[in-house]
Design a protein around this nucleic acid. Structure first.
Lengths: 200, 200
DNA sequence: CCGGCCTGTCAACAGTCGTTTACATGAGAG
DNA sequence: CTCTCATGTAAACGACTGTTGACAGGCCGG
């Protein structure tokens, strides 16, 4: 009973901090529930803010989503200098990533759970191509790099959908066994050409 | 002005036909808009029926979805006797399939656009495992068949998401060029072991 | 031909959604 | 201290959602 007042601010009047709290809460909610499933009231409550402030600081739920999710697509930090072991490292990453890290935010999951909404997909397409496919294609630097990068992203997304969203059993089992089969697939897309594909 | 009456039945009273019309309209709507995006009023209107009939014949929107989508997952018909050319045929299929066929119904697209809704994913998981992953694993009949089948489905779903839902550019371009890179990936998962993966 | 029941219609319910407006409050400037 | 404006609150709007109950219509068996 430490609060006799009906409202405990928990945060003094600070527009910047409130805006940031809403943004963080939105990322978590979009990751867990998708664009349609996450409501502004729920997001605001998780941020300890009033629902009306969402519209005041972001204009609309659509604009909030646009700022929260598509800008978070980032493949660049994952591109190492050495190509050796890159495929396996990424395979192990998608199979073990814990959404509890980084405050429950996972851009890939937020994307996948929001693909049902046409406005959300429209907002994500540009970010996906510019921040994921294009940099990856540049990094591959081989013939058909654009197609290979797109297939790379498709494979990662597909695994995420089956494992984290649909909960398909075999992908939730032994990680090492799955890594052993996923790695060569990813590697074939990023490795220097001539080994697989490309020829007739 | 051939109809002076305010309502033209367009179909005489026939419970079975009405039920079937709703089912067909629901499949098309779920494919195009996903579980959340497709409304019962819209489905009923497309079927030329009254919205209340949806609940009368199916019980609820959830039950309608359960009967319309998860039962349509079917890999069995696509499993040929000969393994030769199977991967390439399936690769070409996912890259050229036209949703206009079969009345605009595509079970994979309906699934992907509905993954944002937890009730929908719950209803689809069983059908997906029993009607797609398990039969495919049996057909592969190799060590780690379950993981390989799951990755196979993940790859196909990922391509569908990136190409048909997100509209990623490289996957909408030259089909043959994409087939050339997608085929060996699928082939590695269904081909007799020893060629790729499984070792170490 | 006629009554009963299956089929279809209509309207409304209760709830949620994003959004907006009017109002209260508190912190900092003069 | 006091005025003032940014910040936060409260309530309601209009539009939707899935669902249900009461009612009408027509087809078929008697």
């Amino acid at each position: 009973m430490k609060s006799s007042r009906s409202k405990r601010p928990a945060r003094k009047k600070d527009a910047g901090a409130t805006r940031e709290a809403i943004l963080v809460a939105a990322r978590e909610a979009f990751t867990r529930l998708g664009y349609d499933g996450a409501g502004v009231r729920e997001i605001a409550a998780a941020a300890g803010a009033n629902p009306a402030l969402v519209n005041r600081y972001f204009g609309s739920k659509e604009a909030l989503f646009e700022e929260a999710v598509p800008t978070a697509f980032e493949i660049a930090p994952l591109l190492p200098e050495a190509r050796q072991g890159f495929a396996e490292a990424l395979a192990r990453y998608v199979l073990t990533k814990d959404k509890a890290a980084l405050g429950g935010f996972d851009a890939t999951l937020a994307m996948l759970r929001s693909v049902g909404n046409p406005k959300a997909t429209e907002l994500m397409r540009e970010g996906l191509e510019e921040r994921f496919v294009a940099p990856l294609a540049d990094w591959i630097g081989e013939p058909d790099a654009d197609v290979r990068a797109a297939l790379f992203m498709a494979l990662l997304s597909g695994v995420a959908v089956m494992r984290d969203v649909m909960g398909v059993a075999p992908l939730r089992g032994d990680v090492e066994r799955t890594v052993r089969w996923l790695t060569p697939l990813l590697d074939a897309l990023v490795a220097p050409s001539g080994k697989t594909g490309g020829s007739t």
